[in-house]
Each structure stands twice: as structure tokens, then as C-alpha cells.
Design a protein around this nucleic acid. Structure first.
Lengths: 266, 266
DNA sequence: GTTGACTCTCTCCCCGGGAGAGGGTGCAGG
DNA sequence: CCTGCACCCTCTCCCGGGGAGAGAGTCAAC
């Protein structure tokens, strides 16, 4: 009997390619049980098959080789499970993103009828209680959560769903003025919360259905619509969170109003 | 007003990187609306945003650039949907494989108690109706389907669940003898179906639960068990399909007996 | 001993993008 | 008008995780 399996036999037993096994040897990920010093032939032991299988599975899950090395070098099953758990979470996230990409792709390629109903309407002036700040694009999300919490505490009787204004510079230049608010009858002034008088404007408005992952699709549509109707944008985009995470935990149920102040370019 | 968005603005609007947009231009995937001939500056139009969004989604789904090019160049929404459907199917398959990899990885790292119960038992001689052939590894699956169909037709009253013997050379050398059979009381001889007398053997036997994606894990375990118990393999591996796709469509319910003829190496 | 299937090492190629160098531009403020 | 500064240009190199193939050496069965 030979001293073990040749690389080809081991490759067939583990469904890894010969090429790949050699790379794993070079990188120290999976050392053959023996290497003939004269011929350089690699020989693998049957007991190495489970390790190879673990590596194969991890690679199927796109775990980088370095990480695979750490995992199989760890003996303690608990610590090993922890290392693996990180990647399982990552998989979960990519799965979510993939799902979101698929649905918004379908929406992009096959606009459902009534998917983009843009309405041109006149919005009267309104009094709101708001928090405003100058932010860069990636600061917006965390800032939003804090500001909304403060608004929730300061405004007892909102006269409608919350909204936000996002300066176009924010998207064009990466930095701009942001305002979040509740419409109110009488505006409190408390902490960062200030009364703001929103002027009357002409709006091109639509509603985005579902989670915000693909809200840029609706933005794109709205921008195209505005362009096609020979209108031009006159101010910050206005979002209205008529159904948000507070109202319904299911993202599919969310409704977000998106509107741009516009004027006619004849 | 400028002739369009600069590459940086367009990058922020579409969440693509400047670098990536330049590559897309070079490869003809997304041409800027205008390029300043003196400075070489790229200028993008607002109407290009939806295209960029489609590209972004497709790339998130790991569609290769060439394929993305085809898709966005296609005007007919039906043909475009067909092109996309191919990739959605591919995603579905990888999703299945990922799931399978995760479950079998967990089984590999955290063997459930009772997950590997190996039994050493004496199997008496038996008469079976079988089809045999010499095959290479990747011919086995298609061949199996045909052989089982023929067996089903030839054997009216099987005396037990079907089984298969796979020569160890099949795994070691990639080519070997394969036998599939039904145990019978009286063996017909019809087409490729022949009566076969299986000899009495000593078996190290276990049962694999679930789909066959990770049957190699059970094989590895069994091999290790055999090795640890100072036994050696004396013949082809025997599989018994006690619950298979014919019995239950749910792969999780499948039960596959796996056994190796062994002898003691003292 | 022959032969043919393996195996060895070596080099080059793939995708899709990140990083950074080195230099040219657009535009607002003074 | 100049200056500063953020932006833009092209260019080259790098990455992971292999695939492909050349050219030579080896194993083992007949």
C-alpha cells in the first residue's frame, strides 16, 4: 500500500482541483501528509478529507483564504463557530442586498403601470418644527436618527407625517443643508428644534413604495419626468414619510413622498 | 448652466465610483453625454441616471460587464427580460448551493450527536436484479437515471429499497464499476437487467440524512471511523436508497444508507 | 523495459475594480 | 487678474482565486 493518496486521487475525493490543492499547499492552508523529497510528489492522508471538505465549503461561501486558514487552525469548536458566524452574517446581508437589487432591477426594467405617477401640485406655505444642519452624504443617516428622536420628544401633536428637505448640493457636491421636521400648529423651540416657515411652492411629486434601498430609482424617474416636462428644479428635494418604520415594520408597506420644487422653463 | 453633470456629481448620484464610471466609458458600457475635446472632461446627462442604475443593479448581481452591455443595449423589454432571466436563474442556483454549503458546513464543524452512528454488521448473501457498467465519475449521475428507469420497468416486486455499489477505483482513479439494483426474490433477465448474487459481507454502515449535496461529509466521517477502528475497506461502497426522491420530494427527508465492506487489520 | 497516465514547476491570463502618481482644469474669492 | 483648491485627466501597478498550457520528470502496470 502506498503512503497515501496522490494529489489527483485526493482531488477527486474532495472535488477540489489539482491546481487548487497545490495552491493550498503553497499557502500553507492544507499541507499534504507527506511529500516525497526526491520527486516532490504530494501525498495526502484519508484523514485530511474532512479538512479539505471544510475548506471547500468555506470557499463556496466566498470566505477569503486567509480567513479559512484561521478557521481551520482553530481547535476550540466555540471559537471556530464564532469565526464562521461572522461570515454567515455577511452572507445574510449580501442575500438581503441581492434581493433588493433584484426587485429594484425588475422595477427599473419593467415599470409597473402606475408605478410612477407624478403629480404637479401647489403646496401652500406651512409652519413646521424642524432641525437643520449642514452635512455630508454619509453623515445623513446617523444624523437623521438622532434628529428624529429629538423631534419626537419635542413635538407633542404633529399635524402630519414627518418630512425632510435635502439640498441638491448634497447630491451634487456631497455636502449640503438638511432639514427634518414635523408639521405643527404651533412651533416649540427646544434644543435644536426651531420653528420654520416653509414657503408656498409648485411641486413635482410622486410616491415611492417600499424600502429605501431602491429609492434612487424613483428619484431617477422623477428627474427624468421633470426634464421631459420642460421643468427645472428650484430647490431642495422634499421627502414625506407618510408610512415609515415607525408605522409599519414591514419595509414593503412604506410610503415615501418625494417632491421637487419646480418652475417652467419655456 | 453647465452642459451636464461632472463625473463626480454623476458618481454621487448613481453611487458608482468615479473610477468605475471611467472604466464603463472605456469599455463602451456607458458613454458620457459629452466629452470636452480640449480638457477630456466627461459630462453626463440626468437622463443617463436610470441606465447607470440598471448597470449598478446588474453588477450587484455579479452579471459580467459584457452581459450588462448586451442587456442595456437591448431595447425590446421582452428580450431584455429574457437576458436578465438567465442571470436570475443562475442566482437561484447559487443560492441553493450556498444554502447547501452552509448546512453541510455546520454539520462538519458541529456534528450533531447521533449524526454519525456507525454500525458494524454482518450482511447475508442476497439475490438482486441489477444493471452494471464501467463509468467515469461524471457519467454516473445521468447513467443512474437511465438504469433506474429500466430497473423500475423490469422489476415488478422489489423485495426492498434500491441500492448501488460503487467501486472504490471510481473515486480513486475516476473510473470504475457501478452496479444499481433492486433486491428480488426471483431475478428477471431483461435488457441490461441481470440477476446478481451479492456475497455475505461484514459492513461498516451508517445513514446519511438529507440531500446528497453533502453526502461526501458522511463518506468522510465513515472513512475516518473505519480508519480509527483499525479496519480496512474490502470492496465497493454500498449505498441503499431507503428514502429517495421517489418516496419523498423533500430532500431533507431522504435517507441513504452508506456501507463499506471491511475487515480487521490487527 | 516500454508506455501512458500522472505529477512536478513555471509562466501567463482572466475579471472588475482599488490605489496612487503626476499633471491639467474650472471656478470662486480677493 | 491671480491664486487656491477641489476636481478631473491618464497611466501604471496590485489584488484574489484560480484556469490553461508548456516542458520535464515519475510511477506503476503490463
Amino acid at each position: 500500500m502506498r503512503s497515501g493518496l496522490t494529489i489527483g486521487e485526493f482531488a477527486r475525493a474532495t472535488h477540489l482541483s489539482v491546481r487548487t490543492l497545490r495552491r493550498y499547499h503553497e499557502s500553507g492552508l492544507l499541507e499534504p501528509a507527506a511529500v516525497d523529497p526526491s520527486s516532490g510528489y504530494r501525498y495526502y492522508a484519508v484523514e485530511q478529507i474532512p479538512s479539505a471538505q471544510v475548506i471547500h465549503r468555506l470557499r463556496e461561501l466566498d470566505v477569503p483564504l486567509a480567513e479559512v486558514g484561521k478557521i481551520i487552525a482553530t481547535d476550540d469548536p466555540d471559537r471556530r463557530a464564532d469565526l464562521v458566524a461572522v461570515h454567515l452574517e455577511r452572507l445574510q446581508e449580501t442575500l438581503e442586498r441581492t434581493r433588493a437589487a433584484v426587485t429594484s432591477l425588475q422595477r427599473l426594467l419593467r415599470p409597473a403601470p402606475g408605478d410612477l405617477e407624478v403629480e404637479l401640485r401647489s403646496e401652500p406655505a406651512a409652519l413646521v418644527a424642524g432641525i437643520t444642519d449642514i452635512l455630508s452624504l454619509d453623515e445623513v443617516l446617523p444624523w437623521y436618527d438622532g434628529a428624529m428622536a429629538e423631534l419626537d420628544a419635542a413635538v407633542a401633536q404633529p399635524a402630519g407625517p414627518p418630512g425632510g428637505h435635502y439640498d441638491n448640493e448634497l447630491f451634487a457636491e456631497g455636502r449640503g443643508t438638511v432639514l427634518v421636521y414635523y408639521p405643527v400648529a404651533e412651533a416649540p423651540s427646544h434644543g435644536r428644534v426651531r420653528p420654520v416657515e416653509l414657503p408656498a411652492v409648485e411641486l413635482a411629486a410622486t410616491i415611492h413604495h417600499g424600502p429605501h434601498d431602491d429609492i434612487d430609482v424613483t428619484y431617477g424617474r422623477l428627474a427624468t419626468w421633470v426634464h421631459e416636462h420642460a421643468l427645472a428644479v428650484a430647490g431642495p428635494v422634499q421627502e414625506t414619510y407618510s408610512v415609515g418604520p415607525r408605522d409599519d415594520p414591514d419595509p414593503a408597506a412604506w410610503r415615501t413622498g418625494i417632491a421637487w420644487p419646480v418652475f417652467r422653463v419655456s
